[in-house]
């Protein structure tokens, strides 16, 4: 069982009328892995997640999520999933506490709803009606509802949109604890590259409905192999061995090198290059 990937996708295709959203996606998520799906708006991230979660039909391709076809899955399969999608506006008249307690009831072995509310930092708002929450607080409620069922596999579609920095860090801690302590497999989409770098074991970049790159955050798009750029007050130079160049400069200046910086391309630079080629 543990040898099987949690998610296995081959040749996934989906079109909305004449618009091709997914043009043959291959994707694997190993058990216990945290995978971040990156890509520009309209790349097909949400479509992919919604097909995997059983909310959308596919046109073609093989999809196995926890060994089942999401298009023909049953309630026992759903009990193993946690889903945080975008664009919900429901539950407005209920309080945070009522909603999380209610959704816990559907699952065979739920987490303690009050603990989950604390984990997403909403304890102070537990008695508040959901329509009175801010956008970021509402999103945190979505995350709480998504994890209260103790899922083996968690889908998070842009979970941190609208979070303040503190809430974002709290969310990162939550994801790390789900993955580290409970072995939860997590597939998340995000536009925040620092978030992807902080949380994900592996990144998959899609653009125009295709996978354009994948790899660990440190090596994505040949990031580790790219030459470093050394800049100082009187010049700059790209090099494979920045340490040697800095040592050489230190000798030349007989001490401190004025304005010295050594940079490698950030994940964001690599990412923008990758999707730039596929625009």
């Amino acid at each position: 069982m543990t040898d099987n990937p949690a998610v296995r996708v081959r040749g996934l295709r989906k079109a909305y009328g004449k618009l091709t959203a997914l043009d043959g996606i291959d994707l694997d998520v190993a058990q216990g892995e945290v995978l971040a799906l990156l890509g520009p708006n309209g790349a097909g991230k949400t479509t992919t997640v919604e097909i995997l979660a059983g909310h959308r039909d596919r046109d073609a391709g093989e999809v196995a999520v926890l060994g089942r076809d999401p298009g023909r899955a049953d309630l026992a399969w759903r009990a193993e999933l946690g889903i945080v999608l975008q664009g919900s506006a429901d539950l407005g008249e209920l309080t945070v506490r009522e909603s999380v307690h209610h959704f816990a009831r559907y699952f065979p072995r739920p987490r303690d709803p009050d603990e989950v509310i604390a984990l997403v930092g909403l304890t102070g708002k537990a008695g508040a009606r959901i329509r009175t929450l801010s956008g970021g607080q509402r999103r945190r409620l979505d995350v709480a509802v998504g994890v209260v069922g103790r899922p083996r596999l968690l889908f998070l579609d842009e979970p941190t949109t609208g979070f303040d920095p503190q809430a974002r860090r709290l969310f990162w801690d939550l994801v790390r604890s789900l993955a580290g302590r409970y072995g939860t497999t997590i597939l998340l989409t995000t536009h925040y590259l620092d978030e992807a770098e902080a949380l994900a074991d592996r990144l998959v970049v899609i653009a125009g409905g295709r996978v354009v790159a994948e790899g660990a955050p440190a090596t994505l798009g040949g990031r580790a192999a790219v030459r470093a750029c050394v800049r100082w007050a009187d010049g700059q130079q790209d090099t494979d061995d920045p340490a040697a160049l800095v040592a050489d400069l230190t000798r030349r200046y007989a001490g401190t090198v004025p304005g010295l910086t050594v940079t490698r391309p950030s994940l964001e630079d690599v990412y923008l290059d990758l999707i730039g080629e596929h625009r």
Partner: peptide, 17 residues
């Protein structure tokens, strides 16, 4: 309204008969 505001979608995502 449930179909529009995401209530049905959320319920379809949990093991609710």
């Amino acid at each position: 309204a449930d179909r529009d505001d995401g209530t049905l979608k959320r319920l379809r995502g949990v093991p609710m008969p």
